[in-house]
């Protein structure tokens, strides 16, 4: 057992910031490569003409999930030391819907707006200004919505733990679901892409 490397004290806080910067470069690089610096490309997901958002997101999730599962299975990574955001189901459901609204109205999510702004999109800069305003608004009303913010507390809970299923089985199910989704995404693009070409 030797990972997460930071948790095992292989380097200190200051150096972790250097690593954060390098990891960020990789993150931004692949977001831009995928075309996610373009609001039109991102928004096309919601008009079913280009499902790259779904494909990239689920490929990334499956890749990282399989990596985590494998590294923990060979005893190299202690999964219990990887940070798991606790679940507060009600605010997360409400937040997800609002975030979905913001995605299709603004054309970006926070990560992709940074990549878009760095490649010259003025609308992305304005969008980032909007995010700051939204966070500030949230901060200002926070004292009045504290109860809701902490409602539906389920603690740190994974799907295998919640449903009482073996971890590997859920991993397998997610892989199958993703493969089915990729197949379906291709079919959807052919139907709606053709419709768009007609109109």
């Amino acid at each position: 057992m030797m990972a997460p490397l930071y948790s095992y004290g292989l380097f200190g806080d200051e150096f972790s910031l250097v690593l954060a910067f390098i990891i960020g470069i990789g993150f931004g690089f692949f977001l831009e490569r995928a075309g996610f610096g373009s609001a039109k490309k991102l928004a096309a997901q919601f008009y079913l003409t280009d499902l790259a958002v779904f494909k990239v997101m689920f490929t990334a999730i499956v890749t990282a999930m399989l990596g985590l599962f494998y590294l923990s299975w060979i005893g190299w990574l202690d999964l219990s030391l990887v940070y798991l955001t606790p679940t507060f189901i009600w605010p997360q459901i409400a937040g997800g819907i609002l975030l979905g609204f913001g995605f299709v109205v603004g054309g970006y999510c926070p990560g992709t707006s940074l990549v878009a702004a760095s490649t010259g999109k003025v609308d992305a800069l304005i969008y980032i200004g909007g995010i700051f305003a939204g966070i500030f608004a949230f901060g200002e009303v926070f004292p009045r919505i504290t109860n809701f913010f902490y409602s539906g507390d389920m603690g740190e809970v994974t799907m295998p733990a919640l449903f009482g299923l073996p971890y590997g089985l859920v991993v397998f199910a997610v892989v199958l679901m993703a493969l089915g989704g990729f197949w379906g995404a291709g079919a959807v693009e052919r139907i709606f892409g053709a419709k768009q070409a007609e109109s």
Partner: peptide
């Protein structure tokens, strides 16, 4: 774009994270 960013900001804070 500004309105969408605002909704995103509020949503991400309610949900304790974004995409």
């Amino acid at each position: 774009a500004f309105a969408g960013g605002g909704l995103m900001g509020i949503g991400a804070k309610l949900a304790r994270g974004c995409t």
